[in-house]
Every structure is written in C-alpha cells, then in structure tokens.
C-alpha cells in the first residue's frame, strides 16, 4: 500500500478548489463558478489518469462528510436574521411552498413528455433540494440515488451560474426575493452564491434550503399518497392529457 490515496485526493481536491476560488475572485465571471471549475478539472484528471471514480469518491468521503455539520451551521444564519424572517413569514411560506410544488410538477411533466421512464422521473423529482434530503426522497421513491445526488449538484451549479442573471432579466431587485429564488431552486450551491450578494440574500437562501427540502418531501409524499408511485403518475398523466 504505502501512500494513502486519501491524502493524495483530499490534497488535490483542496488545491484545485483553492485555485478555482482564486480564479473566480480574480475574474468574477459567473461561468468560472468554483464548483463547476473544480469538478471539471477533477473529472479531466480522473479521465486522463484512467482512475475509477469510485476510488476517488471513497478517498474524499471526509470532504463530503462536512456537508452535514455545515447544514446544521445554517441554523445560525436563521437565528441572526430572525426579525427579518418573522416580518415576512407568510410571504416566505407561500413563496417557497408554491415554488417547490412548481418545481416538482414542472420537472415531472417535462420528463413525462420526453418519455422518461418512471425510474428517471423519481430520480429527477427532488432535483432542487439539498443533497441529503434529495437522496432520502429518491431512495424512498425508487429513484437512482447516486444519480439524484449528482443531478442535484448539477442543478445547484446551474442555479448559481445562471440564477443571478436570470433574476436580473426578470428585474427582481429585492435582496430577500433573490435569496429565496436561489435557495429554493439551487439549495446549498445557490446559497453559497447568494451569500456573495449580501447577508439578506444569503439568509433568505439558507432559509429556503431547509424549507424547500421539507415542502418538497411533503409534496412528493402527498402525491404518492393520493396518486401513487411514478408508474401510476405516468398513467394518471396519460389519462389526464387524453381527456383534455
């Protein structure tokens, strides 16, 4: 054995992330999103070196581990901005719940029209929420768990890269509204980007991670309860669109 692959891959990952962050700070281009750049570089290294991705994943599990404590730490941000949150409780509740519902319904219907199998729909349904919750949902609804985890990251990166420009295009200037949009659509990665816009935007995003997670879980399980699993949902949609 000799040299531990953990030390090697953890150091390489940290180093690449450091340089990606420097690059982002230097050029400020949304396309240079640090997660996007780091993931791309590491994938290239693994491809070129013909290294199995499973070996990499096993070696860097210590890095993913810290996602858990970081989500707990977001509770601190909620506490800090509680006054602002309390003032707009109703608006926050409806914003995040309706957006979460719109997310599940739209992704299901688009996937259905693209003739995706029910396994893929189950994999995609929790795409907007934070990885640990999305994994739980995917698992309990017979999705492909690891693919869900990967798609969640891709959605997060997309939200972080495109989100701010899209919100500018919609002429959304309200800091809190921007945060809710980024956090609800793009969970932690969107939040990391939202934090850059300021404390209010960051807090709104942090708040939406938990809320969107809880609402999405609730909605998906309600759909399951009233309609059935994704197979039955496909049949339900067949009947629905035939009758219209």
């Amino acid at each position: 054995m000799g040299f531990s692959t953990e030390i090697l891959w953890v150091s390489i990952t940290l180093m690449i992330y450091y340089f990606a962050l420097m690059l982002y700070k230097r050029f400020k281009s949304p396309l240079l999103n640090p997660v996007l750049v780091s993931v791309t570089c590491i994938i290239i290294i693994l491809k070129v070196g013909k290294i199995p991705v499973a070996e990499y994943s096993k070696s860097v599990s210590v890095i993913s581990f810290f996602l858990g404590p970081s989500v707990v730490a977001l509770g601190f941000m909620l506490y800090q901005q509680w006054d602002l949150i309390r003032k707009n409780l109703k608006a926050i509740f409806w914003s995040v719940s309706l957006a979460s519902l719109a997310g599940i319904v739209s992704v299901t219907i688009i996937a259905y029209f693209l003739r995706a199998e029910s396994e893929i729909i189950a994999t995609l349904a929790p795409k907007s929420i934070t990885t640990p919750i999305a994994i739980g949902v995917s698992e309990k609804t017979n999705g492909i768990v690891a693919l869900t985890a990967a798609i969640v990251i891709a959605v997060g990166v997309f939200g972080a890269v495109v989100g701010p420009s899209f919100l500018n295009l919609l002429k959304i200037k309200d800091a809190f509204a921007r945060g809710l949009a980024m956090g609800t659509a793009a969970h932690g990665i969107g939040t990391a980007r939202a934090v850059e816009e300021g404390e209010t935007t960051g807090t709104a995003a942090a708040l939406s991670i938990g809320l969107a997670g809880v609402f999405t879980v609730a909605f998906i399980f309600l759909i399951y309860f009233f309609i059935g699993d994704w197979n039955q949902i496909s049949i339900f949609l067949d009947n629905f669109f035939n009758s219209v």
Binding site: L98, A99, L114, L124, V155, L167, L170, I172, F176, A185
Partner: peptide, 27 residues
C-alpha cells in the same frame, strides 16, 4: 435530453415563482 432539459426549465420556473410570490405578499 430529459436529464438536462427537464431540470433546466424547471429550475427557471422555480426561481420565477419563488421571487414573484414573495414580492406579491411581502409587507
């Protein structure tokens, strides 16, 4: 196609709904 298109369009819808509903009900 489905793995790229569905989440991309859906993510934009989520952002739009979240931002507008909040602005509509905000005090």
């Amino acid at each position: 196609l489905v793995i790229v298109l569905a989440p991309v369009i859906s993510s934009l819808i989520v952002m739009l709904v979240a931002a507008y509903v909040f602005l509509l009900l905000k005090k």
